[in-house]
Design a protein around this nucleic acid. Structure first.
Lengths: 147, 147
DNA sequence: ACAAACTGTAACCAATCCAGTGACAGTTAA
DNA sequence: TTAACTGTCACTGGATTGGTTACAGTTTGT
């Protein structure tokens, strides 16, 4: 549990690629290729993005994946929320000992503190859109490099 | 990787217990008892808190653990930083394909976005001290309950 | 001197999750 | 009818977590 899975990063990468296509579609193999990963893994993640109504897919030959919303209407939080599950912080498996004054009261308060911290992280993620991210990517790509 | 370990929760719980002792000490067995856990696990976590100069320990008979700072000078972020390691977000194992325009540029930008989100979480954790948490615990414990 | 009560580690375990992979049914277009 | 996709299952190896036993080292009490 040294943090979250790489699913958020993969999801954001895939959304940025789709945004770069401007309405066009990509196959899971093409996306997996850019990630140096494999199509099944990509389809598992894109499937979650579809459940969250961020992308849609078409089956059969010529099928693939497309954005379901404008890139400026998709934030990094949307991607994060679609593919990560549960809370970031874990509580200890066993409930605290009720015979301890501190143990009795700490449970709910700790949950509240943790949720508050997670909310701060989520709000920060919500401040960047796929459109904004793509714009930065393309801007840095075209930077002059001394020749 | 469905989130962080429970070490932060355990660390904060232990710090709150020590703060409740007001300068006194507790053994790892006593703390483990309140957590319904075991002393070795607790010593592993308290060892990290000691490395971060939040607590100190004395060996031998009558030994145990005490706070190294005033509870109002220890935040939840201090506990978190002492026991959790690395970043919350993971990147995909393989680097993105350099042949892809999006893949080339996304790496550093994604790192920056993730770090920014993590910083927001950390700042929120830094707003609560052990002293404040303990105060809330004791206040809710002594609440009038209709009799 | 000796026993008791601690810390500090190492070693091992079961459970869980991640990501990689092969397989294959279902769907659609050429 | 074939080719190219999605959708999903099953299995894998590797990493990490928390539980537990064991034991060496340290300090106090008698």
């Amino acid at each position: 549990m040294a943090g979250l899975s790489s699913r958020s990063a993969v999801a954001i990468h895939a959304l940025a690629m789709l945004a770069h296509r401007r309405g066009g579609s990509l196959t899971s193999a093409e996306i997996a290729d850019s990630l140096e990963s494999n199509p099944v893994f990509v389809r598992r993640i894109l499937g979650r993005l579809r459940d969250a109504h961020l992308v849609w897919s078409t089956e059969g030959r010529g099928g693939g994946w497309s954005l379901a919303r404008a890139p400026r209407d998709i934030t990094l939080y949307d991607a994060y929320a679609a593919v990560e599950e549960g809370q970031i912080f874990s509580r200890h498996t066993h409930p605290p000992n009720g015979g301890c004054e501190v143990g009795r009261g700490i449970g709910d308060l700790l949950d509240a503190e943790f949720r508050s911290a997670e909310r701060a992280l989520e709000e920060q993620l919500g401040r960047t859109t796929i459109a904004g991210l793509l714009q930065q990517i393309l801007a840095s790509d075209g930077e002059p490099r001394g020749h």
